[in-house]
Amino acid sequence: MVFSGKVFKFGDNIDTDAIIPARYLNDSNDENLRIHCMEDADGMFSSRVSEGDCIVAGNNFGCGSSREHAPRAIKACGVSVVIAKSFARIFYRNSFNIGLFILEADTDGINDGDVIEINTDTGEIKNKTENSIIKSKPIPKFMSELVNAGGLIAYAKKKIKGGKA
């Protein structure tokens, strides 16, 4: 698959409280999560982001709480991919489990507002604004199987159908 979108750039250690503050966790529906996505990191994010845009960040994106509301909020905004130098562990697995595409790469050469194109098969990120190419880290085989199945629950349903459960 190939995605293309505008970049919203963030720094290091963007925690899950910044992605979706606890004051909104009394409701888990997608619309509530969408409106407040990234609110404590960039109050204007949810009104500026459009379908297909990309979140690009530094180290340790998604650290803190296990709340799956965080990748769900990002997905609900229509964000096509999150690229970071590294991800916190639970955010990483949550994203694959819910079918949000995430990539690890050196993000120094990507700036806020750049337009990038991502080829999920080759892991290549083309920065159309800077005219440069960045290679992302390969995704473990099991994880790409999960994403291709459409997330863990879809994977589970397949498993039941296959009579393995």
């Binding site: 697995r93 949550n94 863990l152």
Partner: peptide
Amino acid sequence: GVGSTDLAYTLA
């Protein structure tokens, strides 16, 4: 610690 979807899978 894991996420909610992980918990759903484990419950099943």
